[in-house]
Design a protein around this nucleic acid. Structure first.
Lengths: 237, 237
DNA sequence: CGACAGATGCTTGTATACAAGTACTGCACG
DNA sequence: CGTGCAGTACTTGTATACAAGCATCTGTCG
């Protein structure tokens, strides 16, 4: 889904950097993004910055209003729900496609991943990175690793909502345990149990979001097509 | 997923036009796309053309090789299979989310759509348009209409493969009948039957593709990252 | 004091110029 | 006749200049 080849262009670097900043909430939902400011701060011209913003807009992470401004999109509850439905459908379907003999290399990789999730000093972003790799690894077991790319591209709003939910509150340990349960069911060949555990895990993540929405409604979109006001933007907290 | 607002920009027009041409095979897989040529023929500068190509590249419909050229991506069998898995997972899951009371407006719309699919003088592109609306309508019945946007964005390679398969060979009538079966099961509240019919329908579409791949292998990608050669490009047939 | 109007400064959209690099073409030479 | 090399014509990437439009601020007038 991403850019085809590995040629180093500043656009690619900027795109990845901005995307990361949006997903990790370093750029807060609703924040104004000026092409000129970004270009100046990154030491490049408007062109690669602008093209990066176009790509992010296509993913729904940024909104561009012609002649008005560009903004980090607020977390849209509808898109969060859509992404939840999508990932649940895909990940549950993948579990039913598991082969009789699992790829031992991937299994080992997953085991290693789970090990690291249990480390006590695990940071939040480190956990999210491991979480991402874990779920993609499960998809690879059934030969649908590349489908994860599409799912990952569609769940930007969901990811940001999760980060909002976890900031300072919930420990990742609960999710690590759920990951372990799913993994054990998979290697044990118990598909129904794996599905049950996966569904419970994904829904636990999802339900957590409503709580944070009540806590910080300004980060969520009331009307997705509304134009944010530039002056009242709060960059962080 | 698409551009946020409805402001008329030439970029948006060009993007939609090029996208349509790629999906309908008017621009053949493997064809070279020169930013300069496109800009000249469209009567605009490189900028909006280039930005459109970037968007299409992000969707996987176009490949851009820096300093080399831009090409309509060949149909990638792996991406076709991925899209098949994705849509099957999503559409089957949506059937299980159907409410007890279906939205009568959508039901009527679907009935109307099916009616038009039965017209004898139906053109190929007209059928595809109706097919698209039909499947999206089914998703709307379960409240997941917007998820279809993501699915539609991911199934570009699948759609092109289907068009290759249908060009001149199979009649859409078979698919129309299958659509009818699915619809009847849905309005009858028989979810298991609807799932069975849907699965059969989607797999029938999928299996048709292998046939055409044997027939026109040059339109399919052997190695997705390989650079097409510019001189041997056959624009159509 | 309030309201309206114009100017100003910002925004993104588009066009154009230049930079860097690839691939083919044609000629010279063995 | 084949091979190698240099030149040329093309490609996309980036920088910059200009165009068009919105929003806000400020000054003026009622």
């Amino acid at each position: 889904m991403a850019q085809s080849n590995g040629r180093r262009t500043s656009r690619r670097d900027i795109y990845l950097k901005l995307r990361q900043m949006v997903l990790t909430l370093e750029l807060a939902p609703g924040a104004a993004l000026s092409e000129n400011e970004l270009a100046a701060s990154l030491g490049v011209s408007r062109t690669p910055v602008r093209e990066s913003l176009i790509m992010l807009a296509q993913e729904g992470l940024v909104q561009v209003f012609p002649k008005i401004g560009s903004f980090v999109s607020r977390v849209d509850p509808a898109q969060v729900a859509d992404a939840q439905f999508l990932r649940e459908a895909v990940e549950l379907a993948a579990l039913e496609d598991l082969p009789a003999q699992l790829d031992p290399a991937v299994v080992e990789e997953l085991r290693d991943n789970l090990e690291r999730q249990r480390r006590a000093d695990l940071g939040l972003e480190e956990f999210f990175a491991l979480d991402e790799v874990f779920h993609q690894g499960l998809m690879r077991l059934s030969g649908h690793g590349n489908v994860w790319t599409t799912v990952a591209g569609a769940k930007g709003h969901l990811d940001r909502a999760r980060r909002l939910g976890l900031h300072g509150h919930v420990s990742p340990a609960v999710f690590a345990t759920q990951h372990h349960e799913i993994f054990e069911a998979v290697v044990g060949g118990d598909v129904p149990l794996a599905r049950t555990a996966m569904r419970a895990h994904l829904r636990a993540v999802f339900h957590d979001i409503e709580r944070i929405r009540a806590h910080s409604p300004e980060l969520f979109a009331a009307d997705a097509s509304a134009v944010p006001v530039r002056r009242n933007i709060v960059v962080w907290e």
